[in-house]
């Protein structure tokens, strides 16, 4: 690669002396090129974030991969390699499959409700009307309360005896009184229990969806919309062909991160039902917590938690595609 190797002149030394100036010049020029500067600048900007997550997530993650293939547990500080044994134990567990299924149901149902509610709310908040600030402020409160505490309020609202929801339904004549067969036991009937947990997740995060969308909508320059309007596009056409493509990256990201948050969050289920009644609302993170932490089988707990990752692959696939298609 050196200039000398490329040349075959009889006077290499002299030649080198002559050529060295232009070579040096091109080198300096390489450093000065636009793209080189951009690279240095770019990687410098990227470094802090990349290092942070690499050190504090990457390294611990590798450690937990090791946990998953070892017999690590709290009773013995020294762990041995046992291959895929922990995954096999998970597969053998009936509860694991119930939790797996519940996780999928939780994710899909919650996503549907959140996108419907979030989109509608974002559209409404785009309108100009009096009291907008107040309403916007009210609607985002669920998202700003610490989840660990607001779930406890829901627990109180779902109480089997003092549920205010049931009180209202009962006074409205929709259900019977306390003790009657149609008095819903929110956290005690298998399907209701899972639904109740999903409802809390939706309640808490649809303002989030709405805000992300709103941010996206507002980022669309008004001129573009006006131009489309002038061109005679209907509302739906404008939405589909102008707004959606422009906000697509933000939309995607909001959606994906919410998916991850929903899937890996254990606090709602853990605090409401611990996964009961009879595993009806058990989801993977809760099971992993119970097996891995509470019962001390670190390895098996890690294996169960790692099953979350394949569940997230479809999401990852979408991101990849999105990125490829939107290369500038």
């Amino acid at each position: 690669m050196t200039p000398a190797s490329l040349s075959g002149g009889p006077e290499p030394a002299a030649r080198a002396a002559v050529v060295s100036v232009p070579v040096g010049a091109t080198r300096r020029a390489w450093w000065r090129t636009h793209s080189a500067q951009r690279y240095v600048f770019g990687y410098t900007l990227l470094a802090p974030a990349a290092l942070y997550v690499l050190l504090l997530v990457g390294a611990p993650f590798v450690f937990s991969l090791w946990l998953a293939v070892s017999d690590a547990n709290v009773s013995d500080p020294v762990a041995r390699f046992i291959g895929l044994e922990n995954f096999r134990s998970a597969w053998e567990m009936e509860t694991f499959w119930i939790a797996f299924q519940n996780s999928v149901v939780f994710l899909v149902v919650a996503a549907i409700f959140k996108s419907v509610l979030g989109t509608s709310l974002a559209f409404l908040l785009l309108q100009q009307f009096k009291g907008k600030k107040l309403i916007r402020g009210l609607v985002v409160i669920p998202f700003t309360l610490p989840i660990a505490i607001s779930v406890l309020s829901w627990k109180w609202m779902y109480d089997s005896q003092f549920s205010v929801i049931n009180w209202a339904l009962s006074r409205a004549g929709l259900i019977g009184g306390y003790g009657s067969p149609d008095w819903p036991i929110w956290l005690g009937q298998p399907h209701l229990a899972l639904a109740a947990c999903i409802a809390v997740n939706v309640w808490r995060t649809f303002p989030f969806s709405a805000i992300v969308l709103l941010a996206g909508f507002t980022a669309v320059p008004l001129e573009v919309l006006d131009a489309a309007k002038v061109d005679g596009c209907t509302f739906m056409q404008r939405f589909r062909h102008v707004v959606v493509p422009m906000i697509f990256p933000i939309l995607m990201i909001g959606f994906l991160f919410d998916t991850v948050f929903t899937l890996s969050d254990l606090s709602v289920v853990y605090l409401l039902t611990q996964g009961g009644p009879g595993n009806a609302s058990k989801i993977l993170p809760v099971l992993a917590y119970q097996v891995g932490i509470q019962a001390g089988n670190l390895g098996r707990g890690a294996a169960i938690a790692l099953f979350l990752v394949p569940l997230l692959f479809p999401a990852l696939f979408l991101v990849l595609r999105n990125l490829k298609r939107r290369e500038w």
């Binding site: 627990k155 779902y158 089997s160 005896q161 003790g179 008095w183 036991i185 929110w186 956290l187 005690g188 009937q189 229990a193 039902t273 611990q274 009961g276 009644p277």
Partner: peptide, 9 residues
């Protein structure tokens, strides 16, 4: 009992 016991903590 009533079914509420399924939801109890």
């Amino acid at each position: 009992m009533t079914p509420e016991v399924f939801s109890w903590d």
